[in-house]
Nucleic acid binder design. Structure first.
Lengths: 191, 191
DNA sequence: GTCTATAATAGGATAGAC
DNA sequence: GTCTATCCTATTATAGAC
């Protein structure tokens, strides 16, 4: 069953492209860095992504969307206690951003000169993200409107905390931002 | 007195370089875009900035530091009522970020592959920024420690609000972030 | 599916005329 | 102080062998 192997290998390649885009942004990422990161020659990359860099960015965002759907949104939706759902989501974000040391792919590509398909994916990932956090906030007792504001402000603070870390090396604001979700559970009404 | 004219003209050029770096980031900004934005040929730009793009970024950050020092920090330090200082600073940030429609130069360059001198300037601008906001927060009645946290979290939220706008076009989170400073004045003890 | 070789273009930078 | 012309390198992309 070579098809399964191919899919696994492709996911591995995309994971390495993800790191390059995340660390260098769209314009800063070059075919040479992709080649080095994946161990593949430029021509091999074009074999997998005929439309080049743009298609690579779309593939990486597709994988990011799958993460947001399958890990974050589905956990927020799960029939588990609020505290357990929040704890799982906090751990997932902490791992994704390597304790605040890593950039956010979504935040970087959102500000870069990506194509329309990639931009649509950015919007879809953002919607999944905001809806998941708003659901947690709503379950903690907030009104729908307050929960939506909370989700937007929490997203912003997390994005900004990563920028702050890039500027001064301090990961504590990132940790405080994650902790805002934990605090959410403490305000929750009994379920 | 041609020297004064030169300084004025140079400030105009730097202002246009600022817009290019802000909108495209460090790697996304090219000599061609600088040339178009300033109306100068590449060689003329090298006349003003012999070390090229790197020196241009440093000049732009120097101007940003002057803004943070002369507008934000000096207003926070002024012997005016807290509400008046906050109002002036909010208006300055609202104008700088064009109501939330523009990117932040500091936030973008902090995540890009800039040189050590530019990176040092990023750190200095950030310190001025955080100290100014912490001073406002402290004057509103917070402890020094709380005020410092407030400044970091406010910076993060503002940076993230600009990313959010880039992703979905909504400037309301930016407006809410500015409003956090206005709310600060309402908590203030009588002066 | 991967490679070497190569093209075509854009980007950064310099020389020298005016 | 600005321009044209030029150079070198990096970057994107393709052709064709294996």
């Amino acid at each position: 069953m070579p098809a399964a192997l191919d899919a696994k290998e492709k996911a591995r390649i995309i994971e390495q492209l993800f790191v390059v885009f995340r660390d260098h942004g769209y314009e800063g990422a070059s075919l040479a860095t992709f080649s080095q990161a994946t161990g593949l020659g430029k021509s091999s990359l074009y074999h997998h992504f005929p439309r080049g860099k743009e298609q690579m960015a779309e593939a990486v965002l597709e994988q990011g969307k799958a993460f947001m759907q399958n890990v974050i949104a589905s956990t927020a939706d799960a029939p588990d206690p609020l505290e357990a759902r929040i704890s799982k989501i906090v751990r997932a974000f902490d791992k994704l951003y390597e304790g605040g040391q890593a950039y956010c792919l979504l935040g970087r590509l959102a500000c870069d000169g990506i194509g329309p398909d990639a931009r649509r994916l950015v919007g879809e990932i953002l919607t999944l993200w905001l809806n998941a956090i708003a659901e947690l906030a709503h379950d903690s007792g907030m009104s729908e409107a307050d929960a939506h504001h909370f989700a937007e402000d929490w997203f912003a603070r997390l994005q900004g905390a990563l920028i702050l870390r890039a500027a001064n090396g301090d990961t504590k604001p990132f940790k405080r931002t994650l902790n805002m979700l934990v605090e959410l559970a403490k305000d929750a009404p009994p379920q």
